[in-house]
Design a protein around this nucleic acid. Structure first.
Lengths: 353, 353
DNA sequence: CTGTTAGCGCTTTCAT
DNA sequence: ATGAAAGCGCTAACAG
């Protein structure tokens, strides 16, 4: 029933090998022959059998992009950029040589992360891009390292985007890490320079690299200003979600009603924090300042516009895509740190004297 | 170098056929044998060769989910729900029988939509879920219909989510369509009941079903209230993006400075509209009302909270996932319309007398 | 530049 | 309940 390569070959009066060659375009073929083959392909409406060719060639054109939360633009922007860079090349309707860039949503679950990796390994994926912060649980780190090593051994190119390199895993192509620590530090320095001294911190989930680095930057800035006591009491952890920002803010206010500023783990959490403060009748920034992280598109439209730290998500995703395709040289040592820029806007101001 | 099925068979002292049977769990195998095989699999750290098994079995465990814009939570929420429903089943680390649910970002490009479909067809995908509004260009509709018919013929289950059924394509499993027309109508009725008569409309891109249906609902409500003139002048089209909302709002104000309300194609566009109005020194809703569509998570946190139309994105995505897996019966006629609920909040109010 | 010939690793009748 | 054997449709040497 279904058309195969030899059907095309028969119709074009050539051998199957020749058809394969024109389809893969990786071998010299006479123009007239190629012409004839292409015509036969169109006439027969032939579609290559992916599994068969992957089996024979021992590689596939699948590229996986793993994200922690596909409903979060933080990941959507990176994944979209990577996908455009990987799959958005030409425009031939016939789809030749195209990579199939796909995104897989782990939902922040370490198990699903591993499962997806196995599934991609099973498909003999050409490359894998891991985005976003990693879990710091030792057992999971070990499992990931070994899994990534196996993928690399099997010829899959592994790229990390927005995630620090794993210890021991030297098999990866490259790691693009965001300067979360530096960004966090500059953000809190901004608050300190405005005169704030009692700052609440709504942190992300524990055991995540992103969470830890941002918090470390925050604490470093405080320590440099001689503020060290009570910091654990002024920190509340929670998921990277709006509701978490709302609840944590209420809790922080309960712990210290004299807070003059709240720093959130990311912009989404900051929005929840703002909502909680408004519900408490507090004005931003007159009564209390708020800051986020990431500079997602909606942050500039928040009221008041959110002070935050900009991460070049699109650029990072695109670069990760090129690295995955081997279309760009890996940075020295395989590791690049991507800068984070402070965006001071209206949600932060001087504390009430 | 790489471990194959027969390596496992040898180690477990059974035939390759038996190993295949325990791995696929679709055939009776003695408990003790299965035990032995599984142990060998673990000891050898064996990973099934996907292409090989897909070739032999003529089906793969790949399920594709197509979205127009992966950075937009509208799609992220639906895709995430579908993916969870499809791939998030068990938790066995060994990954048996698991489907690989992946999302593909078309970027709103009809060409890429078709290309992705071809790529999935090539992989012999088990199912395909198409989300979001469709392009209404006749040539593209024809190409899509024929492509989907071919996919269905090849055994791929096709499900539409948030998109009306294509004419002629009866091969699909099911279509879940949002009641964009009804939602649009109720939203404008709400504005009319508040007393608005001069309403600007920032529409989505032309030739998209979503755009057309929402606009039709809007116009229907106006017509029912006897307001018919000038409507084309009070409508501006643009992409589903924040910037488009900003620019279109300025343009509408230019065309009719006496506007008392602006309805946006979706929440993201509405946010852009709000920004433009604020920049013009207009207060919302005292000077002018604004409404969106979709009720994305950030809409309730906007200031003022956005009046909009809620679409049950998560539920729809999850249902599409179940339909794609054949785990839920298709609705009668293969088509289900999903309700849209008006969420009246603070961004709309009575017009200035 | 093109044809021939072996497999790639798995699933699946068909036997037993 | 298990084994033997025949492909699935394609690519990749190797010849020519």
């Amino acid at each position: 029933m279904t058309v195969t390569l030899s059907d095309v070959a028969a119709r074009a009066r050539v051998s199957p090998a020749t058809v394969s060659r024109v389809l893969n375009g990786n071998y010299p073929v006479a123009a007239s022959t190629r012409e004839r083959v292409l015509r036969a392909v169109d006439e027969l409406d032939y579609v290559l059998n992916g599994p068969a060719s992957s089996l024979a060639a021992a590689t596939s054109d699948l590229v996986g992009i793993l994200v922690n939360d596909i409903a979060d633009p933080f990941f959507g922007i990176m994944a979209g950029a990577a996908q455009t860079e990987i799959g958005g090349q030409e425009g031939t309707g016939r789809a030749g040589g195209e990579k199939l860039a796909v995104v897989c949503n782990t939902n922040g679950s370490p198990d699903r992360e591993l499962t997806y990796l196995t599934l991609l390994q099973r498909q003999r994926a050409a490359a894998v891009v891991l985005t976003g912060g990693a879990l710091e649980d030792p057992a999971h780190i070990a499992a990931m390292s070994s899994k990534l090593a196996k993928l690399a051994d099997a010829g899959t190119r592994v790229v990390l985007c927005g995630r620090p390199p794993l210890p021991g895993s030297e098999s990866i192509v490259a790691a693009l890490a965001f300067d979360n620590r530096g960004g966090g530090r500059r953000l809190t320095e901004h608050l300190l320079s405005l005169g704030h001294r009692r700052i609440g911190y709504v942190a992300g989930p524990t055991e995540r690299t992103t969470t830890r680095h941002r918090l470390e930057g925050h604490r470093a800035a405080l320590a440099a200003a001689g503020i060290t006591e009570d910091q654990d009491r002024l920190t509340v952890h929670g998921p990277y979600a709006r509701q978490s920002g709302y609840d944590a803010t209420l809790e922080l206010l309960r712990r210290d009603p004299a807070l003059t500023a709240i720093v959130a783990a990311n912009d989404t959490v900051a929005l929840g924090a703002c909502a909680a403060l408004r519900d408490q009748g507090l004005r931003i920034p007159e009564d209390i300042s708020v800051a986020g992280f990431d500079d997602l598109p909606f942050s500039v439209d928040a009221v008041p516009a959110l002070t935050t730290v900009r991460l070049p998500l699109y650029e990072a995703g695109a670069r990760a895509g090129r690295l995955a395709m081997g279309r760009e040289a890996a940075p020295p040592g395989g590791i690049a740190t991507i800068g984070a820029e402070l965006m001071a806007r209206e949600s932060t101001g001087r504390p009430k004297s």
